[in-house]
Design a protein around this nucleic acid. Structure first.
Lengths: 192, 192
DNA sequence: ATTATCTCGTACTTCGCTGTTCAGGTTGTG
DNA sequence: CACAACCTGAACAGCGAAGTACGAGATAAT
């Protein structure tokens, strides 16, 4: 089922506004998962009613923001070199992922509060899969341990990134130190 | 400053109700961080107004529940043997901690939403310190790595426990497997 | 037994947010 | 240009939760 009623193209200004809204929402949600729709609309320089014209509910908006962010994240990760020695590739992938996790720490919280878990999982999927693929390769080449399920290793990696983000936020760790911290930890955690 | 105005002893039934409320709140918050005060009161078999008589605000209630849970957790951990080979002691400490983290997964979320971070940190402190002490000893004995700050190793340990709790909840990991999973991961992550 | 304490239902206020409706003005598109 | 799509503010309805006030009744302490 491609489309129901051909959905004629939106007008240019509508598209522009939608972009503004998504941009503003991304920013607002990044530093407060509880922002009101009104605040987002204001930040976008748009009427609240206009916003509702494009996104029927708050959840729909959050979903759109989350999906877009994940899509962008996936593009960034796609441009990260994951070839070569798995350990080094992991370091590169972690460094790139960390930036995104760190910047969007709150967006995930917002999503978790308003979206069903399956939906989050689905949207996350492609990003997770990149890590998973790399880990699988590392296991295959005998560089990463195989006594633990690769799914768990993925969880471990993201777990550390999220926790590190919290630590930075609390001022207990410097943001610049994080990639090294995580990489070193994961390197020993993953070696057989 | 011991006490301001001597706080005469509460009546027996009041104490009993306070206990009921804390018990009910602990249970309710454990499976939904967003329960209403009304629901908690109902679960405690107590009027909502009675609850407000003992806890001025919702935040105060959450704080009390959180503090009590951490106190109990600390007692459990206190009865855990942390002597002997650090690696094995860590395994025991993780197993014990994991139970608590797993059961109270949502309580932390509730606390994070309603309490100031410093407060959470403060209440958490004694529990974290146990892990930290063990890690310090392990480092001292040359069993755990020293190229990363011990604070970070503590973070790593708890990070994995919390993520594991999420995985279990999502049905991707069996609860019984978790202690081994975490222990194995941490063992390699911590060895130099 | 008397008193201070505690309980509890009902009903109310306050608050903030979401989502909708309406009516009129603006702007892009063909 | 003409029309449809779009934007807009203001105002409103609905909701759920927090917290308050009152007053009658139950219960524990001394």
């Amino acid at each position: 089922m491609p489309e129901l009623s051909a959905a004629r193209p939106k007008r240019a200004d509508a598209l522009r506004n939608i972009e503004s809204i998504l941009d503003a929402a991304t920013e607002c949600l990044a530093d407060d998962a509880d922002v009101s729709v009104a605040d987002i609309a204001a930040a976008a320089g748009v009427g609240r009613i206009t916003l509702y014209g494009h996104f029927k509910t708050r959840a729909e908006l959050v979903d759109a923001v989350f999906a877009r962010t994940m899509r962008k994240a996936d593009e960034i990760l796609a441009s990260t070199d994951t070839t070569g020695e798995p350990g080094e590739a992991l370091a590169r992938l972690v460094a790139a992922s960390w930036q995104i996790v760190h910047q969007q720490r709150n967006l995930l919280h917002a999503a978790q509060r308003e979206l069903p878990p399956e939906r989050i999982r689905g949207t996350h999927d492609r990003v997770l899969r990149r890590m998973q693929t790399l880990i699988a390769r590392g296991q295959h080449e005998g560089v990463f341990r195989t006594d633990l399920p690769k799914q768990w290793l993925v969880t471990t990696a993201f777990s550390l990134m999220h926790s590190a983000a919290d630590e930075v936020r609390a001022g207990r760790v410097k943001a610049d130190d994080v990639p090294a911290l995580i990489t070193q930890t994961l390197t020993s955690a993953f070696t057989p």
